[in-house]
Simulated scan of single mutants.
Amino acid sequence: MSDVLTVTGTLTGRGIRISRRNIDAVITSMMLPLMLMLIFVYFFGGAIDTGTRYVTYVVPGVLILCSGFGSAGTAVAVSEDMKGGIIDRFRSLDIGGTPILAGHVGASVARNLISTALVFGAAFAIGFRPSATPLGWLAAIGLLVAFITAISWLSAAVGLLTRTPEAAGGVTFFMMFLPYPSSAFVPIETMPGWLHGFAEHQPVTPVIESLRGLLLDQPVGNTPWIALGWCAALLALAVTASGALFRRRTA
């Protein structure tokens, strides 16, 4: 077990170094959520009634959007590994698929935490003032890490499923679309009635509602448990699919 953790840590460091060599892609994935937050707050926020300052409402959704942009690089990196032949070298060193993919996921989580800190910094600069308790902050951070981990593993599965890095980047676009038909940017009740069912019961909405409630110290009920249930289900699906796809690609 310790050997697996050591190898995973080493490969996580490799993933971070690869990110440093693709700094333009990293900067893009970090800047796009910030730009979208500024656009929504300053261009559209005045026309959207959320019952509070719009920057206060929109930050949780931007955090989730940021996770989507950040994890997209995982799909591309996994696809590049599968295409470039480095996997054969790893297998000759008796390194299995789980540590290889976990290394990519670990690097994704690290990148996303940096992006999250940047989003919080920009949000504070334009007026976001959370009122979370210390326990609320820990719960919010824990939930966000759980979601980032789940969506990063899902992106790793996409990287194994697609045959080229370009295709991997294209498929992850659909994951980045999920925050839009949710409560991320506007209240669900303002959407067309036929969209309410999907918006209320898709995986992103309970995560956003939980983060919003925890950061603002508002009642959240059982929403965080629903959000964690979605994260666990996505993680289980992604890890299982990744294992099967890795074995198929390397058979």
Rank of each mutant, 00 (worst) to 15 (best):
V58I: 14
D49L: 03
G46Y: 04
Y54S: 09
D49N: 13
F40Y: 11
G45R: 03
V62T: 14
T56S: 15
C66G: 15
C66D: 12
T56L: 07
D49M: 06
S67D: 14
G61W: 04
Y54T: 08
C66Y: 02
F43R: 12
D49F: 10
V58A: 12
T52S: 13
I64L: 13
L36A: 04
Y57N: 08
G46E: 06
T50V: 15
V62K: 06
P33E: 03
R53H: 11
L34E: 01
L34I: 00
V55A: 10
C66T: 15
V41G: 00
F69Y: 15
V58Y: 00
T50W: 06
D49H: 08
V55W: 02
P33N: 04
M37W: 00
L65C: 09
I64Q: 07
L63H: 12
I39W: 00
I48N: 04
R53A: 14
S67V: 15
T50C: 01
A47D: 14
I64R: 06
I39T: 13
R53I: 11
F43S: 10
F43W: 10
Y57I: 07
L34Q: 02
L36N: 03
T50K: 05
T56C: 02
A47H: 09
G45K: 02
V41S: 05
G68K: 09
I64V: 15
G46T: 02
I64Y: 07
P33V: 00
L36I: 00
P33A: 03
G45S: 09
F40M: 04
I39H: 00
Y57W: 14
V41N: 00
G46S: 07
T56R: 05
Y57C: 10
Y57Q: 06
L65M: 15
L65N: 10
V59Y: 01
F44W: 13
V55D: 07
L36V: 01
C66F: 04
V62R: 05
Y54D: 10
Y42V: 09
L38T: 10
